[in-house]
Design a protein around this nucleic acid. Structure first.
Lengths: 339, 339
DNA sequence: TTGTACGCGTTATCAC
DNA sequence: GTGATAACGCGTACAA
């Protein structure tokens, strides 16, 4: 086992000073040709690489980005991470991923761990518990310390920072409109409690589309579930007691599960009943029938988040200007709606 | 913006020495009651937290684990990360995730970035390109430097380190056996090229089960696809030209896609044809019909990997003993097979 | 009881 | 051209 070699080791071995070695490796003009060649050859031979930690301590820059998300088994978050990784790596940054598992406490603990020097900035999406409590002090503390934060998808207006979202209201609006255009009138919405910022916006879009088309809004056709668990029973019950000819769901899982339920009831998709979901993931693509969805462009969102964060991190000036990027959702038409 | 406060700041403010502050915060016996209280109160007031980077530099311990995986959009890897996170966080470690995107070069670059002091050890699964090339020098270098490595799922015997896998051969064997027991004889296998360690093992298990039951192995019923893309055409063609009554697939996507194909041909699952896949993910659970699978227990795998790594990291002695943990796969029976 | 000095690995400044 | 020194933030052995 050959341990990592340091500047000091090289200096001792070559009988020069540490600073000479440091300069030689940086090809400094002050150092003689001879010495430079000697040092560089030795460094290459022993595969010298500067120690990141020492550099971080000196520069007060870690080149690490902290990503805190509620869950990783959701395809959407997975694509966002991928986008972040892509941009971050291309710019020399590493990504530290922490999961809050939808828990406020875990979110706080994770942020505190990372905020003590481990990262240059945060990219995060709030846990449902955090949005429910409405307690954002951990975010405030971090921003007050001057650590840049980018919020995406599940955001809050109580914090001044850069934000990236898709226009959830528009997405739901487009989807609902589409269903109406196809002659559907009994359109159900399966969503989560309104404390989740995204669910709220989507519900608004749904209502807006119905109102604009003079379709009555029947409150019993709106099913609100907890984010945490998929409440199979309530979905089952919902379809048993409601007559609907189209369904808009705020995520893939609700959609796919619902589709199977109605299929078991003998209904044909999309002829008897249409379905549109959110998130363009594998579940949607490989469902049977394949699912029409509102694509959220997670990877793009990740890239933009990373870009905004790194811009802030690397900008010298302490400008207090924050922007919110709103991405346009896209309707991906597949076979769960009449085409 | 109140910047981070350091020991030095506290010392200056309270007009004591830095070491006094340091000791006081650690409740050292050497420090007087008075001073301790004064210092601790001040520290709490200004929310002092030690700087992780400085501690890392001093201790030569980062409390970071580097995770390098080929992809994150695969549900299996996602569950592994979750398991790693769970164990690591509970033990005060952060997880730095890097994606190789199945590329050898990216894998190497990522490891080099992290190996220069950013992490205490690696948990990784090899990219398909790496397994194809059979070039493991980047792993050798890292282990020679004394950085502990745990390989999971896609492993190699060329590197001495801890490993965690499921018994892929057994999994495929169990699945195939199950199909045979249900009277199937024309059992297809849809897999990837043999350079992927897991695919190879699974193919062996498939063959073994058939041989043991004296079922002829028809090579044309084995379809080998590249890992990279889902070759929809070749799968289509495969089912057009082969008559099969059961299919074993090495991942969820192949399975779900194949199921849709045969359903479009008018076949009934599971009566006309049975399906078994690998990985117990969402796709399987929410497929229609729901999919019988060989569960890989990704989360468990992640936890064990993290445990093995942290044990090595924290063990003082430099024992050169490595173990390979083999997890038992489980057959999860659902509706894509006759029950 | 408190403070000094040193080291972790690196770089920047300044002196020789 | 080269090297000594200080600094980043912390912890600790040792000195006072």
């Amino acid at each position: 086992m050959k341990a990592k070699i340091t500047l000091k080791d090289i200096a001792r071995e070559l009988e020069v000073s540490i600073s000479t070695v440091s300069k030689a490796l940086k090809n400094s003009e002050e150092i003689s040709r001879d010495t430079k060649e000697k040092v560089q050859a030795f460094a290459k031979l022993y595969n010298y690489k500067p120690n990141n930690i020492a550099i971080s301590l000196k520069n007060k820059r870690t080149k690490n980005i902290g990503v805190v998300i509620p869950a990783i088994v959701h395809h959407f978050f997975t694509t966002v991470i991928r986008g972040i990784e892509k941009y971050a790596n291309a710019h020399g940054y590493n990504v530290i991923v922490c999961l809050s598992e939808e828990s406020f406490d875990k979110e706080v603990i994770n942020m505190e761990m990372l905020a003590n020097g481990s990262i240059d900035g945060f990219i995060m999406s709030l846990s449902s518990e955090t949005q429910q409590k409405g307690d954002y002090n951990h975010l405030k503390e971090v921003t007050e310390q001057g650590i840049p934060v980018v919020l995406f998808d599940r955001i809050t207006n109580e914090i001044d920072c850069d934000k990236v979202v898709i226009d959830d209201q528009l997405g739901a609006y487009m989807a609902t409109k589409k269903l109406i255009d196809q002659g559907r009138r009994k359109i159900a919405l399966i969503t989560t409690d309104d404390y989740l910022s995204v669910s709220k916006a989507r519900t608004q879009g749904y209502r807006k589309a119905l109102q604009e088309s003079d379709v009555d809004i029947n409150e019993s056709r709106i099913l609100k579930l907890s984010t945490m668990e998929m409440d199979e029973e309530r979905i089952q019950q919902f379809f048993d007691t409601n007559e609907v000819d189209a369904v808009l769901c705020v995520n893939e899982i609700f959609t796919v599960y619902s589709m199977r339920l109605v299929q078991e009831k003998g209904l044909d998709i999309p002829n008897d009943i249409s379905f549109i979901g959110f998130t363009d993931g594998k579940l949607s693509r490989y469902a049977n029938p394949s699912l029409t969805v509102v694509a959220q462009h997670g990877e793009k969102m990740g890239e933009i988040s990373a870009q905004m964060l790194i811009d802030k991190v690397e900008s010298e000036e302490e400008e207090e200007s924050f922007q919110t990027k709103i991405l346009e959702p896209t309707l991906v038409i597949r076979n769960s709606t009449i085409n």
